[in-house]
Amino acid sequence: MSTILLIEQILNGLQFGVMLFLMAAGLTLIFGVMGLINLAHGSLYMVGAFAAAAVAGVTGSFVLALIASLVAAAAAGALVELLVIRRLYARDHLDQVLATFALILIFSEGTRWLFGSFPLFLDIPTAFAGPVMLPGGIQYPAYRLLIIAIGLLIAFGLFQLIARTRIGIQIRAGESDREMIAALGVDISKLYTIVFALGAGLAGLAGALVGAIQSVQVGMGEPVLILAFVVIVIGGIGSIKGALVGALLVGLTDTLGGVLLPELFGTFMEASAATAVGSSLASMSIYILMAGVLLFKPTGLYGRA
């Protein structure tokens, strides 16, 4: 493999990891603060993508499409928390899983009713439609670099929010002792709604950003949700830092595994067999990574016992 191709695949892994971070950050906050297993988080990713595609189709503005994805997903998340999730906090995890699975079906059928069964397409903004020349003569899509930059900026903003703001202090306290902060006068119901809306907004933004690379279609959030759960297990439940590190590890492992493993097996196997075996192992690589992390650190890389 050439150096240029390797660097391109590393950048692809970073872009994939950053997208997973936007999904996993909200999911880990929701689980860490509320103790809630939210299977419908992928549906909020889908809501953001469809909102962005609809607004871009009407206005032609990608910026407005991103804003719409944030607002629509956050509003949908707040509404879901107020109407459904709020009744599940005192229930066991099985009830939470069943209720949020029902929400997946409701969101999927509702989206299909509004937009139809055919996929929508979100165009890459003209300014980022072409490649960028990087050092070493590497040409790389400008839009993928934009996704990496947006994701890292949001990660920095989340770190600042959690570490330096009043709401961040309340979120960290809520992860440690919800009963205590309620006793100190914090409106725990309001805090839960804010956290849920924040997580939903980040998922919606991720859906909009990826929607310009892939098609926007019903059910697009479920495969990403599985990977987001892998990320928060690796990084540690409730940890934003863990979500970022875990997402980058998963993104790089998945992307590089798909390229390097077939080549590795190709050194001692015929090409067709090497491709089949390498691709199969590559699809398993992130779960092997998760198992390895849990073997040595059951709480995840940055999780607390």
Rank of each mutant, 00 (worst) to 15 (best):
200 A>T: 09
6 L>H: 02
264 L>M: 12
194 I>Y: 05
168 G>E: 07
271 A>V: 10
99 A>L: 06
243 A>K: 00
149 A>T: 11
262 P>L: 03
255 T>F: 05
55 V>R: 05
216 V>P: 15
168 G>V: 13
213 I>G: 05
259 V>Y: 12
185 G>W: 02
57 G>Y: 03
159 F>D: 14
196 F>L: 13
79 L>W: 02
205 L>E: 10
161 L>N: 02
41 H>D: 11
239 S>D: 04
141 P>I: 04
82 L>F: 10
180 M>F: 09
239 S>K: 00
298 P>W: 02
178 R>C: 04
305 A>P: 13
30 I>C: 08
35 G>E: 09
126 T>P: 14
265 F>D: 01
257 G>I: 05
157 G>N: 02
266 G>L: 10
217 Q>P: 09
157 G>T: 01
114 L>D: 12
86 R>T: 06
96 Q>A: 10
13 G>V: 14
269 M>D: 01
233 V>H: 02
286 I>T: 12
194 I>Q: 08
136 G>K: 00
70 L>S: 13
11 L>T: 07
116 G>F: 07
118 F>Y: 10
87 R>W: 15
243 A>F: 09
235 G>L: 11
268 F>I: 04
12 N>M: 13
179 E>L: 09
119 P>D: 01
90 A>C: 09
115 F>D: 07
276 A>C: 09
245 V>Y: 02
194 I>A: 13
166 R>I: 11
66 L>E: 15
7 I>G: 06
215 S>V: 14
101 F>N: 13
125 P>V: 00
166 R>C: 12
261 L>E: 05
289 L>C: 05
98 L>D: 10
107 F>G: 13
35 G>N: 05
240 I>K: 00
72 A>G: 08
238 G>W: 12
85 I>F: 02
145 L>E: 05
114 L>W: 15
254 D>K: 08
175 E>G: 14
89 Y>D: 03
26 G>M: 08
192 Y>Q: 14
258 G>V: 06
13 G>R: 01
269 M>K: 00
167 I>G: 01
11 L>A: 04
249 L>N: 01
256 L>M: 10
39 L>C: 06
276 A>E: 11
257 G>M: 03
281 L>C: 05
58 V>F: 09
9 Q>P: 14
179 E>K: 03
25 A>N: 05
117 S>K: 03
38 N>C: 06
64 L>W: 07
144 R>V: 13
80 V>C: 15
20 L>V: 07
76 A>K: 02
98 L>A: 13
258 G>L: 03
95 D>G: 15
44 L>Q: 08
224 V>C: 12
14 L>D: 06
220 M>Q: 08
36 L>H: 02
292 G>V: 14
88 L>D: 03
303 G>R: 01
25 A>L: 10
47 V>H: 01
259 V>L: 09
97 V>I: 11
25 A>M: 12
276 A>I: 15
2 S>F: 11
261 L>W: 07
217 Q>T: 15
266 G>N: 00
12 N>F: 13
125 P>D: 00
180 M>A: 14
270 E>H: 14
5 L>K: 09
102 A>Q: 04
